[in-house]
Amino acid sequence: MAGKPEFRPTVLLNVIERKPEVENSRPPVVFLHGLYGRARNLGFFQRRIAEKRRTLAIDLRNHGDSPHGPGDYPAMAQDVAETIIAHHAMPAAIIGHSMGGKVAMLLAVEHPELVSSLVIGDMAPARTGHGQGKLALDLLQLKFPKRLDRANANNLLSTVVESQQVRDLLLQNIRLGDDPGWTMGLQEIAESIVNIENWPYVPEGHVYDGPVLFIRGENSPYVSEKHFDIMKKLFPNHQLETMRKVGHWLHAEDPETFSSFLTTFLDAY
């Protein structure tokens, strides 16, 4: 029927779990990576937090070892909800960077009972494009040879990706050796990129009033003054910290400062 929304089936996601030797009653901590990432990207922070708290790092749909399918934020947030329920990990402190931050924010306003607190890395609840759509299309056009090693894969990516930091991220999503290819659902990501760059409609009155920490990069365009009103509306109990001399990949550019903000906030909640 014309105008009927496309069905987005929920999927259970791949999880990497770490926990302390002696478990405690503190809420577990869930890590959500950004676009083209995967759970193990946040392993440095997960290992640190896991010394005191149970932790789960999740591969979002179309990423890592999770299933592939049509992507939008309501579906991705529901995936995470079903996954943390299945792992008896609620309510949880949710840590999300970039796309994972949007998933975390929507999860919190739609299912506040599942979320004890939020940390959002360089993302606002708003439309944020900044060239990701073009990158997805450029990556789809790459032609893999019959055999590929890491060095040649890096050279291949350099034809469309200038930043070595971004290439390092993408290299984790390439199957090397014979019959190389993408392990992530790149076709599904490209087809969903308009949704990923956007922010879904949130009904009036849907807010998350638990503790929230936004951490932005000083040199990044993703969180600016034009976003402050919607951040306050949806997350009235939030605080904002700015990391100096870093951009969108703030946790990779200055992991010690990001870790300090993260652990201080989590210790308080």
Rank of each mutant, 00 (worst) to 15 (best):
D179E: 00
G177N: 07
T183H: 02
G181Q: 10
D149C: 09
D149F: 09
G217C: 04
G217N: 01
E188Q: 15
D149Y: 01
L186Q: 00
V166E: 11
A151R: 09
N154P: 07
R167Y: 02
Q172K: 13
D149I: 02
R175W: 03
L171F: 07
E162R: 14
A151W: 07
R147M: 13
A190M: 08
L213H: 13
E188C: 10
V212M: 15
R175L: 03
P180C: 01
V202S: 09
S220T: 02
A190E: 07
V202P: 03
S163R: 13
P145F: 00
S158L: 06
S158H: 08
R150G: 01
G210L: 12
K146R: 13
P221I: 03
R167T: 11
N173C: 03
Q164I: 12
L157K: 04
I215T: 04
Q172I: 06
D168Y: 08
N173R: 05
W182D: 06
E191R: 14
E188W: 03
N219Y: 10
L171D: 02
S163C: 01
G217L: 05
N219F: 06
T159Y: 10
L186Y: 08
G210R: 11
N152D: 10
K146C: 09
N152S: 08
P200N: 05
G205P: 12
Q172S: 12
P203C: 09
F214S: 05
W182I: 03
L170V: 05
V166H: 02
Q187L: 08
I196N: 01
V202H: 04
V160H: 05
V194I: 15
N219T: 00
G177H: 07
R167V: 03
S220R: 07
D178W: 00
R216G: 03
V207W: 06
L170D: 02
I189C: 09
S192E: 02
N173T: 06
S192H: 11
H206W: 15
W182Q: 10
Q164F: 12
L186M: 10
N219Q: 14
